[in-house]
């Protein structure tokens, strides 16, 4: 017998999975929007997040073979597949964030590892570490303007762009998948803070949460 302490990552009894926002929803129930809500806040909970690192050319081949999408080579680019459910975002010259519907990430990770073989790369499953919030509604951009120093004017922030920037006093990945929607990828430890900040910043426009 070895002395290695083992941690059972698959415990019995099928415990319930919770999004990083679960505590916040319980502690800070959504305020009632009076009439028309200017901001609609939703969570895309429990998605599969993978952080790919490595050379662009090698990763591009593997990603095209497994996901059928091109790896965005341009800085701050964001690409979606035809269904709009899977996305790849440029994070830095050798780092990309892949978000897929929850449950697909393990299969995808294995497929990518097989496709990449002996290449120099790293794949980290960050699904438990972050979550995706979406903002929409007539005043969504006003809320962002109050919260981040990054220029969110449509001229500077077209659809298909995503940046890592300062949001309130936290760091988020801010991205724009469509005309009407903004996505915030927030870290688990900052999820409650960002959620409460958004409730506060949206209060004057009226906010609609689930």
């Amino acid at each position: 017998m070895s002395n290695v302490c083992e941690f059972n990552t698959v415990p019995d009894g099928n415990p319930q999975v919770e999004s990083p926002m679960a505590w916040s929803y319980q502690q800070h129930p959504a305020p009632r929007a009076n009439g028309q809500a200017g901001v609609v806040l939703r969570e895309k909970a429990l998605m599969g997040h993978l952080v790919l690192r490595g050379g662009a050319i090698v990763l591009d081949e593997a990603v095209r073979a497994t996901l059928g999408m091109n790896l965005p080579a341009k800085p701050n680019a964001l690409e979606h597949d035809d269904s709009g459910e899977r996305s790849i975002q440029w994070l830095s010259p050798d780092e990309w964030l892949v978000i897929v519907p929850g449950g697909e990430e393990f299969k995808l990770e294995r497929a990518l590892r097989e496709a990449l073989g002996d290449a120099h790369f790293s794949i980290v499953n960050a699904s438990g570490g972050q979550t995706v919030l979406t903002l929409s509604g007539a005043n969504a951009r006003d809320v962002l303007m109050k919260s981040t120093s990054y220029d969110v004017h449509p001229n500077a922030f077209p659809v298909g762009k995503g940046v890592t920037t300062v949001f309130a006093k936290a760091t988020v990945v801010l991205r724009r998948p469509s005309e009407a929607h903004w996505e915030l990828v927030v870290r688990r430890s900052f999820a409650d803070y960002c959620y409460r900040w958004l409730l506060d910043a949206s209060a004057e426009y009226g906010i609609d949460t689930q």
């Binding site: 800085p75 701050n76 830095s92 010259p93 120093s149 990054y150 940046v163 920037t165 300062v166």
Partner: peptide, 18 residues
């Protein structure tokens, strides 16, 4: 506002990011 050009992101970013 004080912007610095990041040669990797290829755009000007706010100084507090650096």
């Amino acid at each position: 506002m004080f912007y610095i050009f990041c040669p990797y992101c290829k755009e000007h970013r706010e100084e507090e990011e650096f």
